[in-house]
Computed example of a mutant assay.
Amino acid sequence: MDDTTPPLTKNVTQAQLLAAEPSTDPELLRELALSTDKITRQSVAGNPNTPSDVLLKLGAEFPSQLLDNPVFPLLLLENLNLVAEIPLPTLRSILKQENVPVYILEQVAEQADLEVQLGLVKNVQTPKGVLNRLTQSRHPQVVESARLHINLAGELTEKYEERIKEVVQGIIPNAYKADTSSLVVLAQICPIPEFMVEHWVQDSSYKDFFCRRLANSPATFPSVLKYLANHTDDWTKCKVAENPNTPVETLRKFATEEQACFSLALNLSTPADILESLSTNQNQTIRIRVAQHPNTSLTVVKDLANDPDMHVANAATKVIGELQGEYTAEAVRKNPRACHQLGKLESVVLGMIKQIEK
């Protein structure tokens, strides 16, 4: 603290006690309101003995304490013009509170300040009459918000929901202006309304970066991938077909699209029936991927072992050999006698190797 700091505010503990004491002299509270200690200032804002002009100033920082101060309603009764005298920063702050008196909401409706008007339309307690007046505001965003306010709209109807959808779609920026990197993160950490995803899919400006990043990410929600499957961009669709989070019903739709078949054969979530249909695909690489896929049934792999293409047949044969090796190893582990015989064989082989070395 510097030398200009009031003496009583230098002892923080004493200042806090005095600020909270209802019997503290008003002029002393005026001095304590200048404290650099937040708790002290907060207590002054809630003290009923604090001078009204000091309260109204502190209300900008502590709107809840001002509204809860027992003297505040009395001040409004004593001075009918008090609302008009509330400093603008304080007015903006208290309008964000849920317990702001309705008569304050009614009296500030004529305020031209944009933040004040937006505070009114966002407050759930704002009366319908005030909202009606705000539909005549010179600020377009205030007019639109007032029209959509729950109290003005009355009962929720399908038209009301459609109107909200129209407004949101109208303010979604072009991908070149939007921070698409942030949108990618947003779409991966919380559910996104379907109509917004539809908008991204239909807007070609989102194709190159945004939709492709979403389609390729293992963190993307299945609901988003479902809509990305309808994208006009082939690369995006292929990545959706390859994404393990893509719903199975969406994967089934890709089974008839040649460009997406290779991606389906790579997707570890692709079910056995789709892989079976891909096993007859004309593309050699796709059939090889099907043979190597962990979800492919043994029957399909055996069929591919007889494939006319040597590379496909060899890939399937190798998989069968690996599977048989696993079965043999498992059988040995489960059969103690077989383990014993295997141990004896190992001893014989080691003895033969030693004889050769001599």
Rank of each mutant, 00 (worst) to 15 (best):
V130C: 08
D53L: 06
Q125A: 15
G154H: 10
H340T: 12
L55E: 02
L342C: 05
V116N: 05
P222A: 12
G119W: 04
L18D: 10
A153H: 12
C238K: 03
C339A: 15
E242T: 13
L214E: 05
T250W: 08
K38L: 13
W200A: 10
K334R: 15
S279K: 00
P244A: 05
V54C: 04
D203E: 10
L75S: 02
A305I: 08
V290I: 09
M310G: 05
A291R: 00
D3Y: 13
T328G: 10
S263P: 04
E346P: 00
Q141N: 13
V240F: 13
R41C: 12
A272R: 01
L214R: 02
A215N: 06
T236V: 15
E166Q: 13
E21A: 13
E322W: 06
P127Q: 07
I104C: 03
N49I: 00
P294T: 12
C261E: 04
A60F: 04
R289K: 11
H311C: 05
L114C: 11
E346Y: 04
T270S: 01
Q14R: 12
V197A: 07
P89F: 03
V100S: 01
V240A: 09
R289D: 00
P22G: 13
L95P: 08
C190F: 03
C190D: 10
K177T: 08
S269N: 13
S223T: 13
N230S: 14
N216L: 08
S23T: 15
L152R: 12
S35R: 08
L18E: 11
T232L: 14
A316P: 01
Q169H: 03
V44F: 07
H311S: 11
L186W: 04
N47V: 07
C339F: 10
Q136G: 12
P140L: 08
E110Y: 09
H293Y: 00
I39Y: 11
Q136M: 09
S23A: 15
G321H: 05
A175L: 01
Q284C: 14
V168M: 04
